[in-house]
Simulated scan of single mutants.
Amino acid sequence: MMATGELADELSEELPREEVEAAKARAATLLLAFRHGNQVAFDTELDRLLAEHVEREVATLLVWIAAEAVRKAYAPEVADRVLRGLARRAPHDTAQVPVDEEAAGAALLLEAVAAGDVAEVRTLVAGTPDTTYLLGGLVQAVAMMLPLLPEGEAEEIAAELRRRHAGRLPMPRGTY
């Protein structure tokens, strides 16, 4: 395994500091989208990187990040075994980001909110590795409930949100 310091030095020699920082930001965007199972964000960022032909620098930075994580988590004599194990378990199809839908208990969150159980809401949110799916499930639940509101309630809620976010939301259709 190449020492992470050597890898970082090699990258720094190839790119000016500003470009290294920009590449780190691009790599972080990819990693966050992958970690949170956000396929759309992952694909969008990857397409942008491929269009800009910066895939080599981002791949180098992703390897550097992985090597740093292994270096910090494992003793030197164990690190290579960990990396070999990761390589053996790597999926054959790498086009999809991993999503943990089972851990995203939107129904549990909705029930905890309805019961006013603040501690349970905090526990559910803190214990969910993929909050993207948890919040997405909550948005879906709210959308399913909207038709059940008494007439005019949805409009009042929208008007209140517009007041709170004045100037930041587009005007509703038909009011131009």
Rank of each mutant, 00 (worst) to 15 (best):
M2I: 11
D9W: 06
L11I: 15
S12Y: 04
E13V: 09
P16I: 03
P16M: 05
E18Y: 02
V20S: 02
E21L: 15
A25C: 01
A25W: 02
A28L: 14
L30E: 04
G37P: 06
Q39F: 02
V40I: 11
A41Y: 04
L46E: 01
L46K: 04
L46M: 14
A51S: 12
E52A: 15
A59F: 10
T60H: 12
V63D: 10
V63Y: 09
I65W: 11
A67Y: 06
A67R: 13
E68K: 10
E68C: 10
K72F: 08
D80Q: 11
D80I: 02
R81E: 13
R81Y: 08
L83R: 11
L83Y: 00
G85K: 00
G85S: 12
A90L: 15
P91R: 13
H92V: 14
T94V: 12
Q96P: 00
Q96R: 15
V97G: 02
V97R: 06
V99H: 00
D100N: 14
E101D: 13
E102T: 15
E102F: 06
A103C: 04
A107K: 07
L110M: 10
E111Y: 11
A112L: 06
A112D: 03
V113S: 05
V113G: 04
A114T: 10
A115V: 01
D117A: 06
D117R: 03
V118G: 07
E120T: 12
V121S: 05
R122S: 08
L124H: 03
L124E: 05
V125W: 09
G127Y: 09
P129H: 02
T132M: 08
Y133Q: 13
L134V: 08
L138S: 09
Q140M: 05
A141T: 09
M144P: 00
L146P: 01
L148S: 15
E151Y: 01
E153M: 12
E155R: 09
E155K: 09
A158G: 03
A159T: 07
L161R: 10
L161T: 08
H165Y: 14
